Simulated assay, not measured.
Amino acid sequence: MSNRFTQYILIAMALGIIMGALIFNYLPDMRAVLAADINLIAMLFLRLIKMIIAPLVFATLVGGIAHMGSGARLGRIFAKTMGWFVSASFVSLLLGLLMVNLLQPGSNFPGTLPDKAQSTGLPVSAFS
């Protein structure tokens, strides 16, 4: 069954490439209109996906917690999750600091930076 879906996806990709080439070559004045229409369909599809993903993730988490059993087991999993989160954040922070100190991005910037007192023309407000 999944092999058939893979074939459908590959056929749809090939048809999309062919249609794109035909529209590009034979309907140059209709490109913008067709692109706007296709963009509308694509945005609708993505919003439908987003609408389904949030409840699905929520239901999966609630179901997983409900089948967990005891509170002690849930606490151990929470502690492991927080440990992984904190350690991954720490490693990514160290990696970022290491790369910035080794590569020094922006050190050879050829232009001059404006003075701090110079106005940029952008609206600026104080922190509240």
Rank of each mutant, 00 (worst) to 15 (best):
Met1Ile: 06
Ser2Leu: 15
Phe5Val: 10
Thr6Asp: 11
Ile11Cys: 04
Ala12Asp: 08
Ala12Lys: 05
Met13Arg: 09
Ala14Arg: 09
Leu15Arg: 01
Gly16Pro: 02
Ile17Pro: 01
Ile17Tyr: 15
Ile18Val: 15
Gly20Met: 10
Leu22Ser: 08
Asn25Ala: 10
Asn25Asp: 06
Tyr26Asp: 10
Tyr26Lys: 11
Asp29Lys: 03
Met30Phe: 03
Met30Leu: 03
Arg31His: 03
Ala32Cys: 01
Val33Leu: 04
Asp37Asn: 05
Ile38Cys: 01
Leu40Arg: 00
Ile41Met: 00
Ile41Cys: 00
Ile41Arg: 00
Ala42Phe: 04
Leu46Met: 12
Leu46Thr: 01
Arg47Trp: 00
Ile49Glu: 04
Met51Arg: 07
Ile52Pro: 00
Ile52Leu: 11
Ile53Arg: 02
Val57Gly: 01
Phe58Tyr: 08
Gly63Lys: 00
Gly64Glu: 12
Ile65Thr: 07
Ala66Lys: 09
Ala66Cys: 02
Met68Arg: 13
Ser70Asn: 14
Ser70Gln: 14
Leu74Phe: 13
Arg76Leu: 15
Ala79Tyr: 12
Ala79Glu: 14
Lys80His: 15
Met82Arg: 10
Met82His: 13
Val86Ser: 09
Phe90Val: 08
Val91His: 02
Val91Ala: 05
Leu95Trp: 14
Gly96Thr: 11
Gly96Lys: 07
Gly96Met: 10
Leu98Phe: 13
Val100Cys: 05
Leu102Arg: 05
Leu103Asn: 06
Leu103His: 03
Pro105Glu: 01
Ser107Leu: 04
Phe109Asn: 02
Pro110Asn: 05
Gly111Ala: 09
Leu113Ile: 07
Leu113Cys: 04
Gln118Trp: 02
Gln118Ser: 14
Leu122Glu: 06
Leu122Thr: 03
Val124Arg: 07
Ala126Glu: 13
Phe127Val: 14
Phe127Ala: 08
